[in-house]
Design a protein around this nucleic acid. Sequence first.
DNA 1: TCCCCTCCCGGCAACGTTCCCGACAACGAT
DNA 2: ATCGTTGTCGGGAACGTTGCCGGGAGGGGA
Lengths: 344, 344
Amino acid sequence: METITIKDIARALNLSTSTVSRALRNSYEINTETKKLVMEYAEKMNYRPNPIALSLRDSKSKSIGVIIPEIANNFFSQLINGIESIAYNLGYHVVIFQSHESYEREVANTNYLVSRKVDGLLVSLSSLTTNLHHFEELMEKGLPIVFFDRVPNEIETHKVVADNFFGSYEATEHLIKTGRKRIAHITSPIYLSITTERLAGYKKALEDYGIAFDESYVKYCHHGGKLASENEAAMQELLDMAEPPDAIFPASDRLTTGCLAVLQKNNIRIPDDMAIVGFTNIGVAELLNPPLTAVVQPAMEMGQQAVELLIKLIEHPKKTIEYETKSFRTSLMIRESSTGKVHA
Amino acid sequence: METITIKDIARALNLSTSTVSRALRNSYEINTETKKLVMEYAEKMNYRPNPIALSLRDSKSKSIGVIIPEIANNFFSQLINGIESIAYNLGYHVVIFQSHESYEREVANTNYLVSRKVDGLLVSLSSLTTNLHHFEELMEKGLPIVFFDRVPNEIETHKVVADNFFGSYEATEHLIKTGRKRIAHITSPIYLSITTERLAGYKKALEDYGIAFDESYVKYCHHGGKLASENEAAMQELLDMAEPPDAIFPASDRLTTGCLAVLQKNNIRIPDDMAIVGFTNIGVAELLNPPLTAVVQPAMEMGQQAVELLIKLIEHPKKTIEYETKSFRTSLMIRESSTGKVHA
DNA sequence: TCCCCTCCCGGCAACGTTCCCGACAACGAT
DNA sequence: ATCGTTGTCGGGAACGTTGCCGGGAGGGGA
């Protein structure tokens, strides 16, 4: 691993390290020929500045940390693609951590990333996070943070979200218009921003169409791995009701597939006995049985927007900026799970 | 971002930095009381050693780089979960990069990770990589690399793979035993290890059951995004044959969903007109239409094994080790896409 | 001739940490 | 009293880079 340093170049060319450094940065106070000499030699020896030394010097790492609940989820992995494409072009390095829906791991990851001197953080909250102290502290210390998807109300900074109210309204409206009366909503814990927003859209649609809101048709579940049974239990409760729902609207990727599995296991015909519309970016929605109607978020664009805002924050820290919340429209992809056209 | 350093502690306690450093490392040559004093003060002030300074000092970063074709793929994201769980416990930090099936990006990512001084690399080759020079060079310089899934024959190091031959044999055998005669195989470019191994298993099963191998039933496609049309074209060629196949065996996640989409678009009944078995870790296989028979790889375990081997290599570099190739058995999950039982 | 200014370039410190090399006191042994 | 030992600690260098300061050579103007 003998990497060449500025010192090596200086020694080889009989110059000082300062001169070499400035020559490489194309400083005006270095003779043109000297610059050429240095740059050609550096090129020849394949010199690459040591980013660690640079980080130590001016405590900047040209890297940003991303904390998400989990990677194995289409919405988040698409979002990461968006983040990476932009960050890469702007010379930033992306470090990804998963909270696995655990508050403790979220805190641990945050601390780790900060000790690694990331220049900023991109965060989507874990479903078990109620205490935001670890982020508040960092923001007070001046570390730029941009939240996306699951964002905290209590913290003021840039945020990037989908128009959850609209997406949820549109989905619910669609179910109503296709004749459903008893629409259940399975969603995340109530202290998540996406939960309240989607719940609100759901309620508003019911209200606008004169359907009474029934709390017993709403179930709150965690997303996390071990808690998948929670999802199943909630579904079972719904199915066991005196008047079970005739449609279900799960509010996330994980919940959607969970619901589908339970319905399939109980041999419930979709959409005949139960319509379903998922708030999900799952890639194979049209290959499902039946093809799944879905509220799709522009995940890639959301990732791009988030990282752009973050980098703006990093590179212009002085500017006391108006923090903004970018909202992206979702799109409703109507398929058979909610309409029941042909059905192979 | 005023973080406390060893110097601050030294100044506050009227000691030298050396003493503080040794006290914190619990060195035997420091007075017990002094140690206690230092450690308590450090604890109180929430001192955390600066990993960047440490990296600079002994050019180790306690971090490992992962280069994979893409994250938005169940096999790889499960694998990453395995990698992270182990690495985290062993005090290593995981940096993930996607090659997006591009040779250029693979090289760029490799260089970047190396310049960031990762202690080792975990790599699954892009489908367009034929030149391995960038990895060979690093290995000569002493950087530990472990390959997984798509591994190069030409490089000697630890490797972690699925038993692709077996998985492919078993899938093909299953199709034969359920009465299929003309089994097509859609796979990756031939210079990928997984391609040749899976192809070999496929051929062997045909041979063992007395079915002649027909090259025109094998199609080679790239995985990458823009090249999805390639997959579609290959499928169409198969369907347009004089004697089209009665079963299809795609060799990866992406290819499997691609094939399913084409079949659906052409209104081909599965499994009546065409059976399908996918070499895929897709999470919703049983929710597909129809539920998909799949060769599943123990992705998480493979990730764990790979990172364990890598860290062993990193931490015991002197030991001239016998390089080993760990092979994991796949499991065949039989569902309706290949059997055609009930079919809602 | 003297002075000042411009053009180049080198020396040094600093970022945070550890390691090597000493230094000095106290103490027992000779 | 002298010497080596042990127990504690400090000083300095080093990792790679950049910024500040300073300095010499050469040229132009008074």
